[in-house]
Structures are given as C-alpha cells and as structure tokens.
C-alpha cells in the first residue's frame, strides 16, 4: 500500500472519515505519521476552543476578582483556587463521573407551560465534556494572569484617562483592557502553550475514545503498545507538538506586535518566551 493511499485512508480517521479499522500489524512509518497527525485535529480543536472561550471568561473573572464587592470577589477567588489548586487530571475524572451520573434519559425541566427535555448524553463525550473542563481550567489560569496584569496597569495611564474625561466602559475598553493585554501577553502565550500540551490528557482520564477516535497521544500510545517500541511513535508526536508550539509562538508574536504598534519599533518589547512554567 502506497503512502498516498494511507494518507487517504487515515488522514481524517480521528474524526471518523476514512478507513474504519486501525492498522493491526506491520506498521509503516507512513501509517504512524498519518494517524498521529490525524489525532492532532483533536488537540487543536480542544486547545483552540478552550482558549477562545476561556479568554472572555478569564477577563470577567479577573475583573470580578478586582471588584470591591465581596459577592463578586469571593466567588472569583474560589473559582481560581479550585481550578488552579487541583490537578487537571483529577478535574477530568471528577467531571466525567459527574456527567455520567446525570440521568441518562435527559433532564426534564418543568417550566409551567412547556416541558423541556435536556439531553445530557453528549456531556459524557469527550468533545463536549473535556472541552468544558479545559475551558474552565484555562479560564482560571488566565484569570490569574489577567488579574496580575490589571493590578500593574500604571496609575499614570488611568489618570490620563480621567483627564480625557473617559470613564466606565470607555475607560476600560480604550485604556485598561489594552494595557492589561500588553502586560499579560508573554505570560498568556505561555499559558496557551501549556493548554495545548494539556489537551493530551483528555483521552487518558476517563473520557473514552469512542470508536477509537482519539487525539495524537492516544494513537501514539496505540502504536507504542502494539509494536512495543517507544522510539518511533513518541518522537513523532513530540515533533508534531514542537511544530504546534512554534506556530503558537508565531501567532502570539504577531498579536504582540499589533498590541504594541503605538510604540516606536526599537522600543517594542519582543516576545521572548522564557519558559517560566506557570501552571
């Protein structure tokens, strides 16, 4: 079987398109590269959507944490502590068990006139359940980063905003928020990289890989277990992740440039990713 044929059969295997059976013996390098690459679709899916949704929740939680109102501040603090203080692995397990316990037939909400039957089965599937956990998790970590950045917005900027007559939403939108993003960006880049790395945990933590549709590491482990040779499959998945990390750094570097476009070119802070591991 030629490599082109393998790519046709397995390039989209992880989303259920193509050959149904996984290769069983005589694994070629092409098969391993293709199937593991196909698994990367899930890693990108989880990472991308959790990051996008988490960004907005994180901004809200960071603002709530800074609020003088106890009723807003306390829940935000607890939310951050809960998700930053416990292992993601345990969060996955707990969420999965909780979703499984929901009634199989669906929740029936009785709203006086109409009865709504909410189907809950899909929550036990990885695409939804794991995404929710990752979304909440990254929101908590990002909220902590944004909170730190909000606290270090220079006073002079705020005074200048006051002098221009900006207040409330306009002040936030035009002064506080952009400055917060500028300050938080290097740390946030780091968080994004580690979130993508964390997506590899999904299929090892309770969430079953339905019909063997798994992520990159799931297929890598499949090959390593079958061939009893870790020296091929794991370096392949590592290579994919190095590639993805470089892409993330490039994209975040572009955004960083845009965030700092008001500065003269030589004064722009370059996005240097020192791996200050903040997870």
């Amino acid at each position: 079987m030629s490599c082109l044929q393998t790519i046709q059969d397995y390039a989209l295997r992880s989303v259920g398109i193509g050959e149904r059976l996984l290769p069983r013996s005589g694994f070629t390098l092409c098969e391993q590269v293709t199937l593991i690459g196909s698994g990367m679709i899930w890693n990108v899916y989880f990472g991308l959507f959790a990051l996008l949704a988490g960004f907005f929740l994180a901004t809200a939680v960071a603002l709530a944490r800074l609020s003088p109102l106890v009723a807003l501040r306390k829940p935000a603090e607890w939310f951050i502590f809960l998700f930053r203080g416990s292992p993601l692995f345990i969060q996955f397990f707990l969420a999965y068990e909780a979703f499984v316990l929901l009634p199989k037939a669906g929740l029936t909400l009785n709203l006086i006139f109409v009865e709504i039957t909410a189907d809950t089965r899909w929550l036990t599937r990885a695409w939804a359940g794991a995404l929710i956990v990752l979304f909440l998790n990254t929101a908590a970590y990002t909220a902590e980063i944004f909170y730190g950045a909000l606290r270090s917005v220079p006073r002079g900027d705020l005074e200048a905003a006051d002098a221009y007559g900006l207040s409330g939403w306009a002040r936030f939108r035009r002064v506080v928020w952009p400055t917060m993003l500028r300050l938080a960006w290097p740390a946030y880049t780091n968080e994004a990289i580690f979130l993508f790395h964390a997506t590899t945990l999904v299929f090892f933590s309770g969430f079953p890989a339905w019909q063997q549709k798994g992520d990159a590491l799931y297929y890598a482990k499949y090959f390593a277990d079958k061939t009893f040779n870790p020296f091929v499959a794991y370096p392949i998945v590592a290579g994919y992740f190095i590639l993805m990390t470089l892409v993330i750094i490039a994209i975040f570097g572009l955004i960083n440039r845009r965030l700092n476009r008001h500065l003269p070119p030589e004064a722009r802070p370059r996005l240097r990713i020192r791996p200050q591991v903040v997870r």
Binding site: A220, A238, F241
Partner: peptide, 20 residues
C-alpha cells in the same frame, strides 16, 4: 526539551525507553 513537548509524553516514553 520541555518547552515544546507535553510532559505527559515524557512520562509515557521515559519509563519504557529506560526499561528497554
């Protein structure tokens, strides 16, 4: 090496590679 590669890959790789 830890910058670009998820740590869990090393957790799966190192024990079996070392054993072999």
């Amino acid at each position: 090496m830890v910058r670009g590669v998820p740590d869990i890959i090393f957790f799966l790789f190192v024990p079996i590679a070392l054993d072999q």
